[in-house]
Design a protein around this nucleic acid. Sequence first.
DNA 1: TGTCTATGTTGACGTTCATCGAATCAGGTG
DNA 2: CACCTGATTCGATGAACGTCAACATAGACA
Lengths: 123, 123
Amino acid sequence: MSNVEVQPLTESGTGEIVAPCCPPLTERPMSAEEASVAAPMFKALGDPVRLRLFSAVASHEGSEACVCDISDVGVSQPTVSHHLKKLKEAGLLTSERRGTWVYYRVAPSVMASMAQSFAAFGS
Amino acid sequence: MSNVEVQPLTESGTGEIVAPCCPPLTERPMSAEEASVAAPMFKALGDPVRLRLFSAVASHEGSEACVCDISDVGVSQPTVSHHLKKLKEAGLLTSERRGTWVYYRVAPSVMASMAQSFAAFGS
DNA sequence: TGTCTATGTTGACGTTCATCGAATCAGGTG
DNA sequence: CACCTGATTCGATGAACGTCAACATAGACA
């Protein structure tokens, strides 16, 4: 089981982003396929602990943080690891080991995609 | 039990938005209280059927639609009603009966709040 | 009044989830 | 080597969820 992670954005072979997964929510009714892609992202943020973990990573310097910096959310260490894995599987975070610590960072393309989902609401 | 619904945004008596429920996800780590308020909104959108229903309402003319216009999502009518109720409880939709039909519309302040959560990513 | 249509509600069923303790494993440091 | 950080696994439990069929309700219309 090599590093297999969900990639909610359609990317070309080179890793360049081609198009976000879904249009703005107000543009047109979402198709079943689009919804089945986008819903897991929202679902991943639908847990308070995961939302705090994600926010902790996103607000950390350089949009990355090691687990030791963000694991103070009131649940056990295996549970933290479990939630970080869920966020990774949803494509919202990526992880990288550097020396002793594992660093998590937000997946910027996904964030841009979600921002786009709620665009056209600030008008 | 009068129409009691979640109001994730703090509003003044006049209905003017004072402050969104939560800061941008990148601004600072979310507190437990903020997360417990914001997570249900994401959770409500974390189901494919609900996401499609919400998108159908949001993209409909005037940001409102009667159930008969959006209930073609492949599940039974009671299930549609159930999901619409969930979206209402999460504060994402409001409903109003006009004659025979019940119309749902998006709660604009909440949408603006979620858009703000993902702001500062386009920089 | 009765009947039809459009929705909401209820109860049930099976599934998924969040969480824990405890143990173990893997990689890195000293 | 011992020690640390973090991931993984296992079993277990209680809660929440998605779905449906059946029933109830509310308005429109005759």
